[in-house]
Amino acid sequence: MSNSAQELRKLDEGLWTLDTTFTRLGCKGSLRMTVLETATGLVLHSPVALDKDVRNALRSLGEIAVLFAPNLFHHMYLHAAQDHFPNARVLVPKGLERKIGKIANSEIVTDKTVVADGEIEHATLSGHDLNETVLFHRRSGTLVTADLLYNYQPEHNFTEKLFFRAIGCYGAPGVAFYHRYAIRDKSGIAPFQEAVGSWPVKRIVMCHGRIVEAPEAAGIFTSAWQRFA
């Protein structure tokens, strides 16, 4: 897969996205990487395939400080990103090395992990098989998630619209019904909702679906998860 037709899109001060696609079982899906600027460099949330032009564009923005794998499924391009940016910290969820093998110089994300001191906060949905950690970028007021919220709309391709309508994530932000089968311990949901709800979120950027821009964005996210609590 090539990103040659893709460009970094600036959404806010210190915030960019790169929209691309992936193919699975013969179907094309949308995929998004988020770039967060901090005083110590750039954080690449869920790295995607990066061609030379995109890598140069990223370097023109600043040093790549962190490669962030948000959960146990968003890792397809992590090793390639390490090859491109060997000096970056690599933050991964617990259990990822058991799934894909050794990840050189990686750090497992915990509650005590500092992604970017005073600039990025994080919360992990414990007791869930995804083991996903979301990020909150204070400068831009942006919550970044991979798979904990979807928002598919008319601009997406037919196959995606069909699938995400079937799982209840078409036309408005929503949580796929199948998450209930991945929850091993519901006690982790309430503190996770509390953490996200405490942040002044004005935007949600997810890896799949239309970005949510709303002053009540934190409430949209926590309310979507309420039925699983």
Rank of each mutant, 00 (worst) to 15 (best):
D83P: 05
D53A: 15
L36F: 08
L8G: 02
A224T: 02
A57I: 05
W199T: 03
I64A: 06
W225Q: 12
S46T: 08
A229N: 14
K94T: 06
R9G: 05
G14C: 02
H208T: 10
L72Y: 05
P154W: 09
H128F: 10
S187C: 06
L125A: 13
S46I: 00
L8C: 10
L42T: 04
I103T: 09
F68D: 00
T38E: 01
I211N: 06
A116M: 11
H84P: 03
S46D: 05
D83M: 15
K186M: 10
Q82I: 14
G14T: 02
R180S: 14
I100Y: 05
L25F: 05
E194T: 12
G118P: 13
F228T: 04
A65P: 05
R139W: 04
K10W: 07
E97W: 08
A229P: 06
N87T: 15
C27N: 10
K94Q: 06
N87S: 15
I100K: 08
L125Y: 08
C27V: 07
K94H: 10
R180L: 08
D19R: 04
I183W: 01
F22K: 03
G127S: 04
I120S: 01
A229G: 08
K161S: 05
K102L: 10
Y181G: 07
G95R: 01
F136L: 04
M206F: 07
S198L: 01
P70K: 00
L96Y: 03
T110G: 09
N105M: 12
V92L: 05
P200F: 08
Q6R: 13
H128V: 06
L162E: 13
R59V: 14
Q6T: 12
S198K: 13
G168V: 01
K10C: 13
A116D: 02
K52E: 15
R139V: 01
C27F: 03
V115N: 00
V66P: 03
G168I: 09
S140K: 01
R9W: 10
R89Q: 11
P93D: 07
E63S: 14
Y181P: 02
A166P: 13
L78M: 02
L125S: 02
E132T: 09
P47V: 03
A182K: 14
F221E: 06
C207N: 14
T20A: 00
A65F: 12
A81H: 05
R138A: 11
N56D: 14
L67V: 02
A116L: 12
Q193H: 12
V201L: 10
L72Q: 01
A49Q: 10
H179K: 13
G26Q: 00
H45Y: 12
F164L: 02
L50P: 00
E194S: 11
A81F: 11
D117K: 15
C207D: 13
G219R: 11
E216I: 03
W199L: 00
K202G: 13
K99A: 13
I183L: 14
G127C: 06
N87G: 15
R203D: 09
N56C: 10
T20W: 04
H74G: 11
E160W: 04
H156N: 08
I108W: 04
G141F: 05
S46L: 03
I64R: 05
G188P: 03
E121C: 05
V115Q: 01
S223H: 15
A182I: 11
T110Y: 11
N56G: 13
S223A: 15
G41L: 07
E121T: 11
W225R: 08
E213D: 15
N157F: 07
L130F: 15
V144Q: 07
N3G: 15
E216K: 09
V205W: 00
R9H: 11
R165D: 08
